[in-house]
Nucleic acid binder design. Structure first.
Length: 307
DNA sequence: CTTTAGACGAAGTATTA
DNA sequence: TAATAATTCGTCTAAAG
């Protein structure tokens, strides 16, 4: 842990578990999470390291600027300026005719660029979905950026605004390696699953960008946190998952179910038992799936559990 | 009464021809 | 595009604690 902190001050945080250098910060929990293996690095980030260390774009902006931070979530990036329709200047004097013509053109451009309904509506809807899901700010920023690019490329035409916004949120979570099941996003969206997944496909195809597929390990930290499990148990679950992946029994299986199963095993092994029911609930799978996966894991990995 | 185990067909998904 | 295989889900029954 000490060398970890030293690294942090150098500005090169490395995950001690897997060596990955991509560390994400979850502002709502105050935790740094490894993007690759899901290990929570510093629960006590508050009293380690310098205050000003910025892990995300948004933090950086908050600390290095005066005034409100800019945000992709607002149609004008939060830098709104309006031009009044009065034909007098700041001192109340009448404007010259040429000046009036100039201001008139400015007004038109101002309106043309800021009042783009589809963009504005989409970003509002997007923020609503993200906040209802309790998604970290930097993730919803990513979602907003995706949505902007979709609008620029005219990909939103023919698709419900709500569905496209939900798709952006879903993909942003994947980019940040804190995947949420599509159904969880759909639950907050005002569109049905069909429309949302159609939008997801459009974005994946037309936005030339890599959208990493969720790995079972990516689900473990969130499930463990929601179940109130210790980081020790969480690490144990990740250990088991790695072994499972090496033996190749994870192919084609639902990552959520796999994560749920390893957590179930780890919680028993570490004396923090949770019922299949509890785990199935946070993982959004059924108890049946938890059972099948954990039975298979125990058999293939030679893990014995006392019932 | 709660938790777990196991079995069945139904339903949605990925792969293949 | 259609057929095939593998997977998960919902429900039911039963046993164990």
């Amino acid at each position: 842990m000490t060398e970890n902190l030293a690294n942090k001050k150098e500005g090169t945080t490395v995950c001690p578990e897997c060596g990955s250098t991509t560390i994400l910060f979850d502002p709502t929990r105050g935790e740094h999470v490894c993007a690759s293996c899901g290990l929570v690095l510093s629960e006590h980030a508050v009293d380690t390291g310098p205050e000003w260390r910025a892990f995300t774009h948004e933090e950086l902006e908050k600390r290095s600027r005066t005034g409100a931070p800019t945000s992709y979530r607002f149609a004008d990036k939060g830098l709104s300026t309006t031009i009044s329709w009065s034909d007098r200047d700041a001192h109340g004097r009448k404007l010259s005719p040429s000046r009036r013509a100039q201001i008139y053109r400015l007004r038109r451009w101002n309106i043309r660029t800021t009042v783009r309904r589809s963009l504005a509506d989409g970003l509002i809807e997007l923020s609503r979905i993200a906040s209802q899901m309790g998604i970290p700010n930097d993730v919803s920023e990513t979602a907003a950026l995706l949505y902007r690019r979709a609008v620029e490329k005219r990909l939103t035409r023919g698709h419900p605004v709500s569905a496209m916004a939900a798709a952006a949120v879903y993909l942003a979570c994947r980019i940040h390696r804190i995947p949420r099941p599509l159904d969880e996003v759909v639950a907050q969206a005002k569109s049905d699953r069909k429309d949302v997944s159609k939008c997801v496909r459009v974005l994946i195809r037309r936005l030339s960008q890599d959208f990493p597929r969720p790995t079972a390990i990516n689900f473990i930290p969130r499930f463990a946190a929601e179940l109130g499990l210790s980081t020790k148990t969480q690490r144990r679950a990740i250990e088991i998952m790695k072994k499972a992946q090496e033996t190749g029994i994870t192919a084609g299986k639902d990552p959520s179910g796999l994560a749920a199963a390893t957590i179930y095993i780890a919680s028993i092994l570490e004396g923090e038992r949770r019922t299949q029911r509890q785990i199935a609930e946070v993982a959004h799978v059924t108890e049946v799936t938890v059972r099948n996966r954990y039975k298979e894991l125990c058999k293939k990995l030679g893990i014995k559990i006392k019932v």
